[in-house]
Amino acid sequence: MNRCKKTIWLRSVLLCLLWLMVAPAQAENMIMVRVHQNFDNTMILLKEALNDYGYRIAHIQKCDGGLSGFGYKTDEYKSVFFGKFQEMRHLTGTHPELIPYLPLKIAVMKENDSILLAALNPLSLSALFPNEDLQNQFGRWESDLRAIFDELAASKEL
């Protein structure tokens, strides 16, 4: 490859990279998605997607059940706790300050004809826990959550 070609190629790649960096420019405190499925199907798809990314559901908190039990009107609403056993054991040992934020959590709520999923953006924890060795971890969680949410948003009705 001659020098001119190399330069053009390099510049093009750099420009594309720049675009890729700008396009997903988001670091909101929450990651959310709207899913056009019914509630039960959303829960099934969420479980499958979490498993595909190596996570396991630890527990499902039925917020709607608790509220209805106390006589409050509410639509379907669950909190899904999930994580990876070894990862969690390691983190609670090395960074006990993360304990209240684990296992990770996704709120699943019905809103009219669709379902909203919301999670705390792990990247928003970066500012709160600036330890260098945690940043990759937050980045991985964020990337997994976005991928899982994107999959659910694109899912076809079951």
Binding site: M30, Q61, K78, S79, P96, K105, A107, L116, A118, L120
Partner: peptide
């Protein structure tokens, strides 16, 4: 309604 992402209140005893 998104508050579920930090609820329920929890105290973890270790």
């Amino acid at each position: 309604p998104r508050l579920g992402i930090v609820l329920p209140c929890r105290i973890t005893v270790v």
